[in-house]
Each structure stands twice: as C-alpha cells, then as structure tokens.
C-alpha cells in the first residue's frame, strides 16, 4: 500500500470515527434523559401544581411551569410573528432588488440572531426597570419575543425569497397591487416555510432559560395574569436540579424529559407540516 492511500485511509477512519462519536454523544444525551427521567414521570406532574413542601420531596406537579412555558412562548411567538411577517414581506415585495436598506436589515437580523440570550435577558431586565414592570409573564414574553424575532424573520425571509418572480408578476399582471400580491399570493405560496419558521422559533423560545432568569420570575401557582410572575420549564428544571434532595432532582430529570419531548415533537410536526401544506405550491 502506497503512502497516498495510507493517508487517505487514515483520514477516512478519522472521519467515520468523528461521525460515529457525534451520533454516540447524541444517543447518550437522549438515553441519559430518558433513563433518568422516565421513572420519575407521573400523571401528577401534568395535573398538579407544587404543593407545600414540594421542594422537600412531597407531592405535587409542575403543571404551573408547563402551562407557564406554553403561555409565555406562545405569546412571544405570536408577537414575534406579527412583527416578522410584515418585515419579511417588506424585504421581499416592496424593497427594490439590491436595495442597500434591505441588505442592511438582513445583516442586522443575522447579527441579532447571534446575540446570546443572556444579553437579551439583561436588556429585557433594564427595559423593565425603565418601564416600571416587575418580573412577569408579560416581561418574559416581550423578552422572548425579542429573542426569537431574528430567528423567525431570517428563516421566513429565506423561504419567501424562494417565491418565483414570474408568479408575483402573474399576480401583478392581473392588476393586483403589491399589498394584495404579498398577502394573497406570496404568503400562500410560502405557507409551509412560514409555519416551519414559526415552529422553529417556538422551539427555540421554549427551551431558553437564560433570557427568563431576570424577566419571568418564578411562582408555584398557575399563570393567571400578564403582570404576575410565571414559572417556566427550563427554570423549573434548573432550580430543581440544584436541590440536594434526590426526589426533587428526579423531578428535574422528568421535567427535562418533558421539555425535550415537547421540543422534539415540535420539530417532527414542522417536518410533517411541510409535507402536508405543499398542496397548492407551484414549483
């Protein structure tokens, strides 16, 4: 065997090893969470709020944080959607091709995407002080909305940009204004992509803890008002995991399992939706 193929085989071995390592790590993470979490999973976790002495290992559940997370992230996703859809439509329908402003906006959103969530948390906290808002569902919602806005906008932008120009021209040729073309043709054409973008953003938002530490607070009761603190899954996991009591730690694993399942199902749903929604799509 000559030196050339020796080198090739050596690197090929390394490549396969790296790939296998990554797959192994992923399976290890998932297995750890399942093995640790499954025994502690109980119906009560989904149906009850924490009772007295819950954090000492007594009974109760984490319904408060499951609902809290869903409300908070749901609200944030809706807010972010209401902002990012118009922005993306402007970028792709109104802005002229090669417009400096559109380029600059895309660049900004890319950079915003890269900002760590802890910074959004700190920023949200500062804004709260300015606005006189306490740790609350609303404050958390606004912060997460800010956090996922760039993700949603750029993912939507990538999809809406794929809408063929002749399709838009066809609508213009029928006498449609850009506004009508944007909402009746462009949005429909890119619906699967838009819903995927929304789901991706939701998944990112529901798993994030760092932005909520300062802004959402924590509580044992169910979320009732926009202006009261709210419990969220990632923080519940984080706090319970730091407990020295095994039963409480066990619940952290179970909660982590729940959160992971929620996020994985979202990604599966978004894949399925992409398939289902392509009925009307022109390729």
């Amino acid at each position: 065997m000559d030196k050339r193929s020796l080198e090739e085989n050596f690197f090929k071995f390394l490549m396969i090893a790296s790939t296998a390592l990554i797959v192994a790590v992923l399976s290890m993470i998932l297995l750890t969470i399942i093995i640790k979490g499954l025994p502690h999973l109980s119906w009560a976790m989904f149906t009850q709020t924490p009772k007295t002495c819950y954090y000492l290992g007594k009974e109760g559940g984490i319904l408060n944080s499951i609902l809290g997370s869903l409300y908070l992230t749901g609200g944030a996703t809706i807010l972010a959607f209401l902002l990012s859809l118009p922005i993306t439509l402007y970028l792709n329908v109104y802005a002229k091709k090669g417009s400096k402003l559109a380029y600059f906006t895309r660049f900004t959103f890319d950079v915003l995407w890269g900002i760590p969530s802890i910074v959004y948390g700190a920023f949200g906290f500062t804004l709260m002080l300015v606005l006189g808002l306490k740790c609350s569902l609303l404050a958390g919602m606004l912060t997460v909305a800010f956090l996922i806005l760039p993700i949603m906008t750029r993912s939507m932008d990538e999809v809406i940009r794929m809408v063929p120009q002749p399709l838009m021209d066809a609508s213009y040729a029928l006498g449609a204004t850009r506004f009508e073309t944007a909402f009746k043709v462009v949005v429909r054409q890119s619906l699967p992509g838009i819903s995927t973008a929304v789901l991706i953003a939701f998944g990112r938002g529901i798993g994030d803890a760092a932005s909520l530490i300062f802004t959402a607070g924590f509580t044992d009761s169910l979320p009732t008002s926009l202006f009261s603190p709210v419990a969220t899954l990632p923080l519940t996991i984080f706090f319970q995991f730091s407990s020295p009591i095994p039963a409480v730690q066990g619940r952290a694993y179970a909660a982590a399992l729940i959160l992971t399942i929620i996020i994985l199902s979202i990604s599966i749903i978004s894949r399925l939706m992409t398939k289902k929604f392509t009925r009307h799509i022109v390729r």
């Binding site: 021209d169 066809a170 449609a176 429909r188």
Partner: peptide, 28 residues
C-alpha cells in the same frame, strides 16, 4: 394596476397562483 388590468399576460412557463382552479380565475 389600471394599466395592467387592460392586458392579460401569458409567461413562458405557466404560473398558476397557489390556490384552487376556481380561485385562480376569480382572483382578478
């Protein structure tokens, strides 16, 4: 929009709008 309404356009490749046959005609 008024100018364009006076003219129908057929492009090289047909681009039906992403909706039903009926809605395509009724769109305009």
């Amino acid at each position: 929009t008024r100018i364009r309404k006076k003219m129908g356009l057929l492009s090289q490749k047909p681009y039906p709008l992403p909706m039903s046959i009926y809605d395509n005609i009724a769109y305009g």
